[in-house]
Design a protein around this nucleic acid. Structure first.
Length: 405
DNA sequence: TTAGGGTTAG
């Protein structure tokens, strides 16, 4: 019977068994894997089963970020360059991800070189790769170079800037704290008849609000509405962001305005409302927002849990905080180190030892090893340190800060 | 499906 299975099939099976993780499993693993070597391993175990471009790009991006965090630039280069041997390199979107990855690592020179290599690689150029190059430039925080590229590249390579190219240019001006140049660019787009979307406007609102120029931001908002541009949740969230430090009624009013305009407030909108209640010592209302998320077709994100648990701890409502913490574990969104420290210290203070120990057990499973060194100190301070010896190095506060899951 | 908002600092 078994002889009916051809050998090559068996071989295939064994190969699959060795690298049998799906792209979505890889994504989940990569999110919590901070060791760059292991991240690389996860990535390669799946890259053969290239499925959706979006997923692959995301996995590649995470891998590069892990390497970049460890300053392993030679490895990043090796990793990205190896993709140039892939037959898909002649597809512009594939090459664009490489350009952006270099940008993310702060390796703009390599991004530029990859863009220049396109003729040699046989990849056609359009505004897509031009935009990838501009993005790499902003990722590398070389904002002043974006206008320069904007002047040089289109003529040199026969690509024409589109609404996205202009969007990146505007973003660069905003990032360089020059909103007036951003508005100038907006006017240029009008002259040239390039579509201006809510995205473009939102970039500028944000910059204006940040500069304390709320009035001009409001004027621009009205201009956008008058133009009949479809406003979306992200645009509203910028507005909400700049009022959420004050009276919760203002946030509520904006959320209502969104709903009336046929827009669905999202998790970010509700997070602002919840934070605003927290800051105004309105605990019940804050919890109500959290509990109402699902009914509003929203899922709590890491920030939701972090903010709410922190404020509940501040109010010494450790029972509620612990309950919500358990939910955050279920959905793999455990808050950061400091929030967890407040919670465990509070639980011990209230003699909730069972809960404190439960929390510690979970943390040990979920936090990356480098953070566990600092966590050990917390346990010791509480007299809860377990017997295993682990004081191998000095706790690093910077590492602890990055313990967000 | 490449540009925008949130990952506050408590």
């Amino acid at each position: 019977m078994s002889s009916s299975i051809p050998l090559r099939h068996l071989r295939q099976l064994s190969t699959t068994a060795k690298s049998s993780i799906t792209i979505s499993q890889a994504k989940t693993k990569l999110r919590t894997e901070h060791d760059p070597d292991k991240a690389l391993e996860i990535y390669t175990s799946v890259s053969e089963h290239y499925s959706s471009p979006t997923s692959s790009r995301y996995a590649q991006d995470l891998t590069v970020r892990r390497l970049a965090k460890s300053h392993r630039f030679a490895d990043i280069e090796k990793f990205i360059e190896s993709h140039k041997n892939d037959p898909k390199i002649t597809q512009e979107p594939f090459l664009c991800t490489l350009i952006r990855s270099y940008g993310r690592s702060g390796m703009f020179d390599h991004a530029m070189r990859t863009f220049d290599q396109m003729d040699q690689l046989g990849t056609p150029r359009s505004s897509l790769s031009f935009n990838a190059l501009l993005t790499a430039c902003t990722y590398s925080k070389q904002f002043e170079k974006v206008p320069q590229l904007f002047d040089e590249i289109p003529n040199k390579h026969g690509v024409s800037p589109d609404k996205v190219s202009y969007g990146i240019l505007i973003k660069s001006y905003c990032a360089a704290d020059k909103p007036e140049k951003a508005i100038e660019t907006l006017r240029l787009m009008e002259e040239k008849g390039i579509e201006i979307t809510a995205v473009t406007f939102t970039t500028i609102f944000n910059a204006l609000y940040k500069k304390g120029n709320g009035e001009e931001a409001e004027n621009l908002w009205n201009e956008m509405v008058k133009k009949g541009i479809e406003v979306d949740a992200a645009a509203y969230n910028v507005k909400i962001m700049y009022v959420h430090g004050g009276n919760p009624d203002n946030v509520k009013a904006l959320i209502e305005e969104m709903a009336n305009a046929g827009l669905k407030p999202d998790t970010i909108s509700y997070n602002y409302l919840m934070s605003c209640y927290c800051m105004n010592e309105m605990k019940e209302e804050a919890v109500k927002v959290y509990e109402g998320l699902e009914g509003n077709a929203c899922n709590p994100n890491a920030a939701t849990f972090r903010t709410l648990i922190f404020y509940l701890c501040k109010n010494e409502d450790y029972d509620k905080a612990y309950k919500i913490f358990k939910r955050s574990v279920e959905v793999h969104k455990i808050p950061d180190f400091n929030t967890m420290r407040h919670l465990v210290e509070g639980l011990v203070k209230k003699k909730k030892m069972k809960e404190a120990k439960g929390l510690i057990r979970t943390i040990k499973k979920k936090f990356p090893p480098n953070v566990l060194v600092a966590w050990k100190k917390v346990e010791e301070g509480l007299g809860l340190a377990s017997s295993d010896r682990n004081a191998s190095s000095v706790p690093d506060d910077e590492e602890a800060k990055e313990a967000t899951a």
